[in-house]
Design a binder for these strands. Structure first.
Lengths: 237, 237
DNA sequence: ATATCGATACATGTATACAAAATGGCACCC
DNA sequence: GGGTGCCATTTTGTATACATGTATCGATAT
């Protein structure tokens, strides 16, 4: 340990350590949060797995303090579970909790769609149409990862179109919480074709300025995804 | 500072320090979070006011570390704003954001009511009826603080009755976020009478197992409160 | 007199040191 | 042979020390 400068600032990256990927003006805790949340969403950190403060601190070449603070920050987003002195774990969501979360998410995304139907301009139609075209293309190519990303774009566009930033934030957060589980389901048999069809219904309702239809189309879409996800998980346990 | 034991554990409470009110097995950061969140909800800490790490640490006789962690935890609940090195402040919510939050809250509480209408048993009717009776009594006495607390109990009972713990948590969190602003509105002219009447409509719809009516009654109730709150704030600015 | 620059003071971010609780393994007893 | 209690290790919680960025205040120049 003698080769690490006395105290404080002089951090430096030794071989074998991961970089925090440029964080100008950002605090270490915040950079760590982004890195770790990305790893969770991408599935590199499995739900239920333990997060070791020291290990992570060493891996990124920082002290335990910013790591701990990042854990607290992630606990705020419900991505990490803090259990007193028992340590931090990647939040593992039980099937029952997933059902509950999808019920809420269906309602929130439905509200996004309803508000969007009331508020979108004509110009927005071109934008969402373009996203949808790319989704269809990705579906035909069969490139699952690209499809997943464009799918996310589609929903994101509707969040924004709701013109309610708080609602958009809230919905995004919830989406992130189940991201680790969702990703697995994109590979199910008819999921891609169904998604394209459901998105079309949602899009039409919004562009027709029909709030109720937009709401129910979106709610059904999310609920169907939830059902698929549960079927998928059931096959494993 | 010489009289504070060398390092670590030996914490002790000197005169003039506030106690953290018995926290057996709980960590200091968690105790602090509860204390501070309570102070925010009660309005003792005004929105926008700066939270000084050292001052709070000294006030409760702990070091800066648990104070900082409590801030991170509260940031998770959107009660505190962290602005890099510029310090932490009690989150101040602009009118626009309040409108957005009430729109979401109306939907979430509405969902609670809808699910409750589908799921409540007969026994629950007695429980909610008893709470409502106490609310009416408090309304007649005119004891605003008691009224506020019982009002909260009423809503809490419906959260629980939804049998969706995630939804209940989410709704509670949102309620806490606007608590500092809500409390001020209870004192408005007809608010108490209106609240009692609206609660009756909600209760009847739930007990009649009419999900749609329960949903809209609750949504209207929350929206009306939001409107009142905005009127109230507008009078000040 | 006002505006700008610089030095100082202070608050936050980060690292390390110490204390205590929890996990795991071993010995001992039933 | 299995279970229970004790000890060592490991990991978290907390306190303090140090580094760095921000703000404040005063001096100087225009």
């Amino acid at each position: 340990m003698a080769d690490i400068g006395a105290h404080g600032g002089g951090r430096r990256v030794k071989n074998g350590q991961e970089s925090l990927g440029a964080s100008p003006g950002m605090t270490l805790a915040e950079s760590l949060r982004q890195k770790l949340e990305g790893a969770i969403a991408a599935g590199h950190l499995e739900p239920g797995s333990r997060l070791d403060e020291q290990e992570i601190a060493q891996r990124f070449g920082v002290s335990r303090t910013p790591v701990r603070e990042a854990f607290r920050l992630m606990a705020a987003n419900n991505l990490v579970e803090l259990r007193g002195r028992l340590g931090a774990t990647v939040r593992s969501i039980k099937a029952q909790a997933l059902i509950e979360m999808f019920q809420v998410m269906a309602e929130l995304e439905g509200l996004c769609a309803r508000l969007a139907a009331r508020r979108v301009s004509q110009a927005w139609g071109a934008e969402i149409g373009e996203i949808h075209q790319r989704l269809v293309a990705a579906g035909e190519t069969g490139d699952i990862d690209v499809f997943y990303d464009i799918n996310q774009e589609f929903h994101e566009a509707i969040y924004e179109a709701s013109r309610n930033t708080f609602l958009a934030d809230q919905t995004r957060k919830l989406r992130n919480q189940v991201a680790a589980y969702r990703r697995r389901v994109t590979r199910m048999p008819n999921r891609i074709a169904d998604t394209v069809r459901e998105h079309e219904a949602i899009m039409q309702a919004i562009l027709a300025h029909d709030p109720e239809r937009a709401h129910s189309a979106m709610r059904d879409h999310v609920n169907l995804l939830g059902d698929n996800l549960l079927d998928f998980l059931a096959a494993f346990e």
